[in-house]
Amino acid sequence: MARISVEVDGIAYEDEVEPRLLLVHYLRDRLGKTGTPIGCDTTNCGACTVLLDGRSVKSCSVLAVQVDGCDITTIEGVSSDGVWHPVQKAFHEEHALQCGYCTPGMVLASIDLLKDDPDPSEEAVRQGLEGNLCRCTGYCNIVRAVRRAAQEMRVTTP
């Protein structure tokens, strides 16, 4: 067992974990952070994407012990004071989700993408989300949503 301390969505946790425990299972089974789902075994689907010290990672391919001392943001920590993040809002407005299983990962990958490129072209959004699979939407509305969120974020954060 290894001792880790980690901050998840603004709350500090200290836990004993087996070295092999995957971050996503730590979040889901130990912390009850079930907002982050698991869709594959091979880092392909991106459903489990979270932010690790501010950058997107696939929490199914990170060990909990590796994030000792780190800061994690999941979909549950993206809103602030009950106000949705512009990306969450845009996904809703543009109907960028159907079953919603990929949505947490898509939202966090999009937030990461917009950090680097505040005004992404359609092509840039498509390339930037290549690590997140959606089986419902055909991606059109996801692309629209990310660009809509970008616009809103540019307006609100000069």
Binding site: K58, V62, A109, D112, G128, G131, N132
Partner: peptide, 9 residues
């Protein structure tokens, strides 16, 4: 190489 999230790790 892979995708942005994988490139971060």
């Amino acid at each position: 190489v892979a995708d942005p999230a994988v490139r971060h790790r």
